[in-house]
Amino acid sequence: MSQNYGTKRIVTGAHYGLRDWLAQRITAVLMALFTVVLLAQVIFGEPLSYDKWAGIFSHQWMKTLTFVVIIALLYHAWVGIRDIWMDYIKPVGVRLALQVFSIVWLVGCAGWAIQVLWRL
């Protein structure tokens, strides 16, 4: 004879908590550091022109760093928008459609950003 104590609670989004909170903070720090590196290159040097801008991104290390920051930005945006959809959109079908649209949009933005980055 087993006895159950307490109520059974359906946990839907609660398991994301710490992992996503930490991911948001890490990606934010990464994007802030990238901004500092980019500003340092723009401020300390010759006046800003297309040639200088293209020169900044011509180095392989800068392209790689920018690619990593683009991925971090997309993950940061995904965590935030997913949490908004989960918190405020109650009908499951509408929420799912918005999440799928968000994923497709973010993947499209990633493709466009990478294409622009490697054209320089």
Rank of each mutant, 00 (worst) to 15 (best):
I10M: 08
L120N: 06
F44W: 13
Y5M: 09
M62Q: 06
K8H: 03
L33P: 02
A110M: 05
S102Q: 08
M31G: 08
F57L: 10
A97E: 06
L96S: 08
T27I: 00
V107G: 02
G45N: 03
V116F: 14
A97L: 12
K52D: 03
G93F: 03
Y5S: 10
S49F: 07
Y5W: 11
W85M: 09
Q60H: 09
L73E: 04
G13F: 11
S2L: 14
Q24E: 04
S102G: 10
D87K: 11
W85T: 08
W61S: 09
I81P: 00
I70L: 07
G93I: 01
A113P: 09
V69Q: 00
A113E: 08
I43A: 06
W78E: 04
A28F: 15
L22S: 11
I10H: 06
V42P: 01
R19A: 15
G93T: 05
V42K: 07
G80Y: 01
L74F: 02
T64F: 06
W78K: 09
Q3Y: 14
Q99R: 12
L120W: 13
A113I: 05
W61I: 11
V42N: 02
K8T: 10
C109A: 14
H76F: 14
L98K: 07
K90V: 13
N4A: 12
V104H: 01
L39E: 00
V68N: 00
T66R: 03
M86L: 04
W112E: 06
A97M: 12
V79W: 01
F101S: 11
R95C: 06
R19K: 13
W118Y: 15
L18E: 12
L38S: 03
L30G: 05
A77V: 05
W61L: 07
D20N: 08
V104M: 04
F101M: 11
V94H: 05
Q60S: 13
D83G: 05
M86G: 00
A32P: 03
I103H: 09
L33I: 14
V107I: 15
M86A: 03
L22Q: 10
A54V: 12
V11L: 14
L48P: 00
L30H: 11
V94R: 13
G17M: 13
R25F: 11
M31A: 15
G93V: 01
I84F: 15
V29N: 02
F67V: 05
I71E: 03
T66K: 00
L33M: 13
W112R: 05
R95A: 11
Q24W: 07
L73N: 06
T27Y: 09
F44Q: 07
R25M: 12
L96V: 09
A97H: 08
Y16C: 07
A97V: 11
I26C: 10
V107E: 01
A40D: 07
F34G: 05
A23C: 08
Q3V: 13
V69Y: 02
L74P: 00
V100F: 04
